[in-house]
Computed example of a mutant assay.
Amino acid sequence: MAGEKGMFGQGVYLAESSTKADQYTDDKSARSRKEKGMFLVRSCLGKIHLAKTANKLQRPPCFQSGCESDACEHSERQRCDSVVGDGSWIFREFVTYNHHQNYPEYLITYKRV
């Protein structure tokens, strides 16, 4: 799980682009050509909340009409299962808040060229 500094709070962050994942393998001020690794993950996103702006969430927001809060009193069954960040940034991000929704199927090792 990502730390609290994540754009959408503490969760498992996934991307459909390997370039997005590669950004997190080392510090951008000290890029290297050493061997790196990333997981190819199968994820069950379920009911998705589409986020156009960053929001530090503790859990997926509610999908009740007009609510869309992560701090409301609605039950867990009335919440989305994941968040997709699709705003003005370059890559979409997929966030799940329960690690059981993800299955790391392959570890891919690579070198930048």
Rank of each mutant, 00 (worst) to 15 (best):
A2D: 15
G3H: 14
E4R: 13
K5Y: 07
G6F: 07
M7I: 02
M7L: 06
G9V: 02
Q10A: 13
G11D: 02
Y13M: 08
L14F: 14
L14V: 10
L14Y: 04
E16W: 05
E16R: 12
E16C: 04
S18G: 05
S18V: 04
A21I: 00
D22Q: 07
Q23Y: 13
Q23K: 12
Y24L: 07
D26I: 05
D26H: 05
K28C: 10
K28N: 07
K28Q: 09
S29F: 07
S29A: 07
A30G: 06
R33N: 15
E35V: 09
G37K: 01
G37D: 05
M38C: 01
F39R: 02
V41I: 13
V41C: 14
S43D: 06
G46E: 06
H49L: 02
L50P: 00
L50A: 04
A54W: 01
K56A: 11
R59A: 05
P60W: 04
P61Q: 00
F63Q: 05
F63M: 04
Q64K: 09
S65C: 03
C67H: 08
C67G: 12
E68N: 13
S69K: 06
D70H: 08
A71M: 09
E73K: 15
S75A: 13
S75H: 06
S75D: 15
E76T: 05
E76L: 06
R77C: 12
Q78V: 00
R79I: 00
D81Y: 04
D81I: 01
S82H: 06
S82L: 01
V83T: 15
S88H: 11
W89V: 08
I90G: 05
F91Y: 14
R92I: 00
F94P: 02
V95R: 12
V95H: 11
Y97M: 10
Y97F: 14
H100G: 12
Q101E: 00
N102L: 10
N102W: 02
N102P: 09
Y103E: 04
P104A: 10
E105P: 01
L107A: 02
L107Y: 03
I108C: 00
T109C: 00
Y110W: 11
Y110C: 09
Y110K: 12
K111M: 13
K111R: 06
R112K: 13
R112L: 14
R112T: 15
V113G: 13
